Simulated scan of single mutants.
Amino acid sequence: MAQRFRGGLVAAAGTLTALVLAGHRLVPNWRGWGNTLDSALPWFGLVVPLLAVAALARRSRLATAGALVPAVTWGVMFGPAFVPAVRAGQPDLRVVHQNVNMANPDLAGTARALRAARPDILVAAELYDDPVLMNGTVDPAFAAEIDPDLPYRFPDNPGIAVWSRYPFVGRPKSVPGVPRSRWATIRTPHGRVNLYAVHLASFRPGERWVIAERNAQVEALAAAIRADPSPRIIVVGDLNTASTDRELRALTETLSPAAERAGSGLQFTWPATLPLVRLDHVLTRGLEALDSRVLPRSVSDHRPILADLRFPSGREAGAGR
């Protein structure tokens, strides 16, 4: 009997890991710990090699099966993120974003690094987002580096600053229920696109009201996207929401993550020194993702991200001018 069930502990551990991976959304979200579990899911892959070693040591078919089940589950969930999309051609829009950190002592250097990525649209969070201190403006040293290349700038900065190579149609507006947000239509040579720049509330496990505010802002943003009839939308910013967080589903029901579509890996962005989770995102509708990358770190606690986007084939050149 003992021989028959040799490796049972390994099998049980593997089965439990697979069940957590597959059924994480069923875990109650008490004080945000369900969201925290969601955010940690990619790291459950580290359990697989440990189980594999244990299975080899036990020399048991039961243990081997126990190691394979979570390996397959993890592969199904995260494997597609590592399959590069094969899309030829040049991008129509390059979007770059970074939470530059309010305590950044070298904003000019950070701006130069972002400018070197040659964005068509640049979104910067925490660029002095205190409306009393800065009167809703951006840091002059940062702006001096960006303005020459990207001449169109959102006129105010509620914690999210935006530059564009192409002009805006009308005055940018805020998203109801999302204080640090602005959206506007941008007129590009390839057609119009609605850009939503956002910096959602922080996520702190165990702090119920903070998490409730983040979750409410995710839903408010999702409601605005659902109500937007535009065929082409870009949402970019620090969403303080991991790619695997159950709350992000409210957005990904109608938008596609550029990183996932480009097949460029998990692309963690925070903390910058040793990224453990992706909090910064580019989500799109009606656009193709040719590339998505995490750029080298600068003086910030978040790493910058880049997304190369293309308007769908068959578009009318200059449509929407």
Rank of each mutant, 00 (worst) to 15 (best):
M1D: 14
M1C: 13
A2H: 11
A2E: 14
A2I: 12
Q3L: 13
Q3Y: 04
Q3D: 15
R4C: 06
R4A: 08
R4I: 09
R4H: 12
F5V: 13
F5G: 13
R6L: 02
R6P: 03
R6W: 01
R6V: 05
R6T: 03
G7D: 06
G7L: 09
G7Y: 06
G7E: 04
G8Y: 00
G8M: 05
G8Q: 05
G8C: 03
L9E: 06
L9Q: 14
L9Y: 11
L9D: 05
L9N: 15
L9T: 09
V10G: 00
V10L: 03
V10R: 00
A11Q: 08
A11G: 08
A11K: 05
A12M: 05
A12F: 12
A12V: 07
A12Q: 07
A12N: 15
A13C: 11
A13H: 01
A13F: 01
A13K: 03
A13N: 07
A13Y: 00
A13S: 11
G14A: 11
G14D: 01
G14S: 03
T15I: 07
T15E: 00
T15R: 00
T15W: 00
T15M: 03
T15P: 03
T17K: 02
T17V: 15
T17P: 04
T17N: 14
A18R: 03
A18F: 06
A18C: 07
A18P: 07
L19R: 02
L19V: 05
L19C: 11
L19E: 04
L19T: 06
V20L: 12
V20M: 11
V20Y: 02
L21N: 02
L21G: 01
L21Q: 03
A22D: 04
G23N: 09
G23T: 12
G23V: 14
H24A: 08
H24G: 02
H24E: 07
H24R: 12
H24T: 10
R25I: 05
R25Y: 02
R25T: 05
R25V: 12
L26K: 13
L26W: 12
V27N: 03
V27P: 06
V27S: 03
V27W: 01
P28I: 03
P28D: 11
P28H: 05
P28G: 04
P28C: 08
W30S: 06
W30D: 15
W30C: 14
R31H: 15
R31C: 11
G32C: 03
G32I: 00
W33Y: 09
W33R: 11
W33T: 09
W33I: 15
T36M: 14
T36V: 04
L37S: 04
L37D: 02
L37K: 05
L37N: 00
L37I: 09
D38N: 13
D38Y: 01
D38T: 04
D38H: 09
S39G: 11
S39I: 05
S39Q: 08
S39P: 13
